[in-house]
Measured scan of single mutants.
Amino acid sequence: MATGGRRGAAAAPLLVAVAALLLGAAGHLYPGEVCPGMDIRNNLTRLHELENCSVIEGHLQILLMFKTRPEDFRDLSFPKLIMITDYLLLFRVYGLESLKDLFPNLTVIRGSRLFFNYALVIFEMVHLKELGLYNLMNITRGSVRIEKNNELCYLATIDWSRILDSVEDNYIVLNKDDNEECGDICPGTAKGKTNCPATVINGQFVERCWTHSHCQKVCPTICKSHGCTAEGLCCHSECLGNCSQPDDPTKCVACRNFYLDGRCVETCPPPYYHFQDWRCVNFSFCQDLHHKCKNSRRQGCHQYVIHNNKCIPECPSGYTMNSSNLLCTPCLGPCPKVCHLLEGEKTIDSVTSAQELRGCTVINGSLIINIRGGNNLAAELEANLGLIEEISGYLKIRRSYALVSLSFFRKLRLIRGETLEIGNYSFYALDNQNLRQLWDWSKHNLTITQGKLFFHYNPKLCLSEIHKMEEVSGTKGRQERNDIALKTNGDQASCENELLKFSYIRTSFDKI
């Protein structure tokens, strides 16, 4: 039985969820670079991206490699990797027998973001014989899940209580170790020597080791999670996991709180800001991140802002960003909400898709409305799209047979046209069989910064309504002859009103 693990408890099935942008060198404390989270699957090609990484700022997932063999891993080693800020997950990587050479110096898994409450997941690794993470000293947050690894031993010899604050939620089941077939031998045991430290858990006094050649490092209890030197002297209180010299914040392997210019500090002093819960960055760093993602459509890219001495992905609820200094300031009234469309555009074809934009005031991208039916549609669209004030790209209304009016965009005031449909149009209306009105132009103002209007096959939309939009939106004169079809717009509506004058002759039985 794995020490510190839980057996036999019912657990939810383990679901495996399925960018080499360097964020800056980590400095003297770390020998390499800070790398983003990685999802490495199918083959070993991307694994080489770990070569210079000291910190993975995010998670590391290595999974679904069915053609790899043990010899493929023999020359692979990433000794610079010290810390993973989120979680480490391995799933069905064939041929991998140990992690001792792959990650010989991995010391800390912070667990800032977890995989279903777990910071370390080893699942269905069919050839893994031992973990071998002999320098792993601290899992700051989260638990361990090690399950269905039929060859995995050296679990009962690990004292997880020396690595985690609590072992109650560890789930370590259905491994070879369960069948008591392992016969784990710690260093020196074969020669009758006791080389590794022994600890007591559940009444068992057991030597602690990761492999037959690597003991588990056990520091004096007084050192807590700070770690200790090879001689057993406690590291500085700002260290986490390990250090090369005692009581020196510049000799830590990793930091308990924050890293700044080669030393570990309790908090980031001005003019620095907390970033990702582990390091200090200056304003320029946060500003660069903001600008890199301002026009990016890459998933996970955030326009970072500053709030409460932190550089964070977005302002919290009730705050909006001051564009001059990136500071989050309290909103006066309802907060603006910028919604970034991942692929640059979004099609609204149902109430469900409209709900995804609920509360958005600025759309960074283009909207395509293609709704053919739905219950209580006008009210639903207004509830979900009615706060949109600005669209950076274009607005396209296409084959939306259920629409009679666009009044559900009740606050839309600006279409920038930074991206144009077919390279020309910022407003595009095609084949809307029941569209009769755009907006009530006596109450609604709309500016279209650039781009043209396109109207074709809107049989109940009168040309007068379209011409009014040209005047109000500032697009009059931009359109070419064929942009607004004269014969297919309003051709099934009563669009022309003329005053009919009647004269009559009164007659009676005795007068003409």
Rank of each mutant, 00 (worst) to 15 (best):
V93I: 04
P79E: 08
F283H: 04
I222F: 10
V281K: 03
A156P: 11
V206Q: 14
S77T: 13
G262Y: 03
S237A: 12
Y259V: 06
L164T: 08
I146A: 06
L96R: 01
Y94R: 10
V206K: 06
H274S: 05
M65H: 07
I82R: 12
L44I: 11
C235M: 00
N150M: 07
M65K: 01
Q299F: 06
N170F: 09
H127S: 15
C182D: 06
P187G: 14
L164M: 13
I62P: 00
R110L: 09
G333I: 03
N117P: 06
L81R: 00
Q61F: 06
D169W: 04
D247A: 10
R256L: 07
E238S: 08
E151A: 13
G32N: 14
N179Y: 07
W210C: 10
Y87F: 03
N322R: 12
P334N: 11
N135G: 14
S77L: 09
E51D: 00
C280S: 00
E49T: 12
K148T: 01
V173Y: 04
I82Q: 07
C234V: 01
L136V: 08
K224R: 05
L155K: 10
Y259A: 11
M38A: 07
K251C: 09
I82E: 15
S98D: 01
C235D: 00
H48P: 04
V167D: 03
G227V: 12
G241W: 03
C331W: 15
S161T: 11
D178H: 14
S112V: 12
C264I: 00
M65Y: 03
H236M: 03
I122A: 05
P104H: 00
K224S: 09
W210I: 13
E124L: 02
L29G: 14
L260W: 09
I82V: 07
G241R: 10
K80P: 01
D261Y: 15
Y272A: 02
C239P: 00
L131Q: 02
D178F: 10
V126I: 05
G183A: 09
T320K: 03
T68L: 09
T199A: 09
W160A: 02
F115C: 04
L133P: 02
Y134S: 12
Y304E: 05
D101S: 14
S143V: 06
Y319A: 11
D75F: 06
G183D: 14
N195C: 09
G203M: 09
E207L: 12
I122S: 05
G37A: 15
F116H: 01
L136A: 02
T250R: 08
K148P: 01
Q276L: 09
V34N: 03
C215P: 10
V55M: 03
L99D: 00
V126A: 15
T250G: 13
W278T: 13
V34T: 08
R297P: 09
C196F: 10
T267Y: 15
S237R: 10
E181A: 11
L90W: 03
C328W: 02
C182I: 06
S98K: 03
I146F: 10
K176Y: 15
P330S: 10
N295K: 05
R145Y: 12
C235W: 01
N257Q: 12
T229H: 03
F275D: 01
M65Q: 07
K67R: 13
L155C: 12
Y118M: 14
N170I: 08
M137K: 11
D165C: 14
N202Q: 06
N202M: 05
K224F: 07
H226G: 13
C182P: 12
H307T: 03
P197C: 08
G232M: 02
I163S: 01
E180W: 05
K176R: 04
I185N: 12
G183C: 14
T267A: 14
